[in-house]
Structures are given as structure tokens and as C-alpha cells.
Design a protein around this nucleic acid. Sequence first.
DNA 1: ATTGACAGCGAACGATCGTTCTTCATATAA
DNA 2: TTATATGAAGAACGATCGTTCGCTGTCAAT
Lengths: 196, 196
Amino acid sequence: MKKLTPAVLKQRSECIRNFYTERGRMPSFSEIGGLVGLSSKSSVFKLIERLEKEQSLSRDVNGRLLPGPMSHPLRVLGSVEAGFPSPAEEELADTLSLDDLMVKNRQATFLLKVSGDSMSGVGIMPGDMVIIDRSLSPKSGDIVVAEVDGAWTMKRLKKSGENIVLVAANPNYKPIRPKNELKIAGVVTGVVRKYQ
Amino acid sequence: MKKLTPAVLKQRSECIRNFYTERGRMPSFSEIGGLVGLSSKSSVFKLIERLEKEQSLSRDVNGRLLPGPMSHPLRVLGSVEAGFPSPAEEELADTLSLDDLMVKNRQATFLLKVSGDSMSGVGIMPGDMVIIDRSLSPKSGDIVVAEVDGAWTMKRLKKSGENIVLVAANPNYKPIRPKNELKIAGVVTGVVRKYQ
DNA sequence: ATTGACAGCGAACGATCGTTCTTCATATAA
DNA sequence: TTATATGAAGAACGATCGTTCGCTGTCAAT
């Protein structure tokens, strides 16, 4: 048999990962055999042993398979101006999942697409999606989604004593002082934007 | 025994869902028993049958458990100015995972923290994280991370024939015309920002 | 040509899986 | 009261799981 190249190993690892993202669970050894083209479970067993050593796979406390170190890993590197990392540095870097990073309380969280440029001054552009947490109590300085006098807007909340003002981050918009009621739907905890 | 109230049913369902989000896989029947406090697998079996009918759980083609309809759900709602949705609308809305939304090719993707305000004109602020895909071939108009004449920067790429220019989105920065070499590390496919 | 390492196959093992059945206790209805 | 429905327990089942062992064949170095 030919040598098992890293390329082949990676391809097989991706087969397994694809199964996980598509089906929401890890495949069994027999299923992995079918995915990568191995008719013996023991061959799969050896494959898994390898992938474990390479950290592209891990196991539960109970010995069950898990995708990657945990959850959906994304490499996090340094800052742009600090220089670009070498492959060696990458291996040391932390990994995380966007979901875990951005969402604390999944039950109370949802996404909202932004239209209008009232917050473009702080980098929230039309077309962006904002992550909103309903469970947080809004503090002064937070960006909130609120219903003021019948209309829904996204603005920055400013409290000074009893005085409450909603301020846009664009000088073209005037601060709003709610006359009657102010219903705050949630606090903006993050922004995501997708190019292409 | 007392009647099995919908509240209890929901609580047990959430126990299972929590296990999934924490551990990345569905629990076995015995494990579910431990989670919700049932010492018999057959009791768990009946519980699962119920949850299946209530659509709060589903099964594989192979009969394996799946969390809910599918994947890590995040509600996606309409745009801010279109008005805020009622609870009824929420249930109909699509759900998605941030990871699936933002990352196509996980192997070639990583995150980079932005420092400097050279791209603040397009809403990429200092402290934001950009999602970079190494596998994409940079096209004119893309925002790229590149090494020009020894220094790493994030700029917008402009090609016109053989002419290549890197343009900042901040008028304080002058366009860069790479003299010697231009190494493009990857294309920015998204931006995420986290408040608090 | 001989050797050794490696990739894969196939059989067999105990363990655990999900399922079914029977039994028991209790709450509700007649 | 008695009767019935319901929730849970427990035993037993075949099926599948992950694991181990021994074997074959091929590539590469000696």
C-alpha cells in the first residue's frame, strides 16, 4: 500500500467533520468506514487514533467522538498591525466558536438586520446584522432596540437620573426624548457583517 | 403519580437540549435518565416518544436522536425599521447558526483582531474581529490582509489591468502601491464585533 | 532478495445501545 | 368504594457499538 499522506488524512478528517455539520452528530465507526472508504472497523479505529493525536478530533469523558477540540473551532490570531502569524504560532492560538463567542443566552437572543444609517458612526452599517439579547437590562451607554412613541429604532441609550435620551451615532439624526412610552426590546450585544 | 404537566415536559426537554449544547452530542437513554431523574430506560423511552410527537425532538434516518428540528438555532428577524416582530412571527422565522452563516471553509478560515482605524470608513472599527478566508482568490474590490513591502495591513484591493493598489477606507491614509512584493494572506469575508 | 513498517481486512469480544414486556403504585373518574 | 388511566421501575432481548487481535499484501529501505 501507498504511504498515507497528510493530504489523505486531512481529507478523511473533513469527511467526518462534514458528516457532523450536516447531520448534527458524529458518525459511528461503521459509518466512518462508509464515508472514507474503509470496509473494516479496525481500520477506522486506527484512523481515529491518528486524528486524535493530531487534535483534529477528540473524545468525550465517556469515550464518544467529538468534532475537533470542542465545538466549532476557529483560530484566533493576533492583531493586523502586530504582524502576521507564522504557521507555528497558529497552532498555539486559541480556538473558539462564533456562536459561543457572541451568544450567551441563546433562548433570549436573536438577530436583526439593520436598515438605515443612524448608527453608522459606530460602525453599524445598513445590511449588518445585530445580535440582540432580550434578557439584559439596558444600561446607559448601551445600544438598544426600542419602540419610542410607536416607532422602532436602534439607538444608544443615555440615562442621567430620570432623564432618558436615545442618541443616534450619526449627526444627521436628532436625539430622541421619548414623550409617552419607551419600550426597550433588547440590548445590542454584537454585530456581524458578511461580505460576498 | 401526578399528572405529567407540560411544564415538566418542557423542563425535561431543555435538560436534553442543554446537554447537547454543552457536550456537542445527544445523550444516550441512560444519560437522559440521569439528567431528568428517571432510573429506568423504558421511562426515558416513553418520554422520548412524547417529545417526538411534540416536535421538540426528532430522529435520524438511523433512529438516532437529534436536537429539535436541526442545528444551533438563532432566530433571525426582520429589519429594525420594519417594526418589531410579535412572538407569533418569531416562531415562523428562520433559524441559523452564526458559524454556519459566516464560515464556509473552516480549515482555511481564522479570525484576526483589528487595530487601527484605516478601514473605519466601511464600518470595520478598532477592536473588531475580521473573518479571513485563505482559500479565496482575491478579486478587485475585496478587503484583504496583505504584506506590502514588509508590513502587514488590511486594505481594499483595487486591480485595473496590471496595476494593483491597496486603498484604505479612511482619507487620512494614502493608497499603497506595492513596489516590490505583495503577499496577500487572505480575503476578509466578514466582521464580528462584541459589545460588553 | 530480504526485511520491516505500514495500511487495510476480517473475525471475535464484552459493553452498551434502544426496544419491548410485565409489574407496581398512585391519581382520577365512575 | 371500585375501576381505570397514567407514570415510572425493572428485567430481558437482539442489535450495534467500540475495541482487540491476527492476518495479508504492498511500499520503501537495506
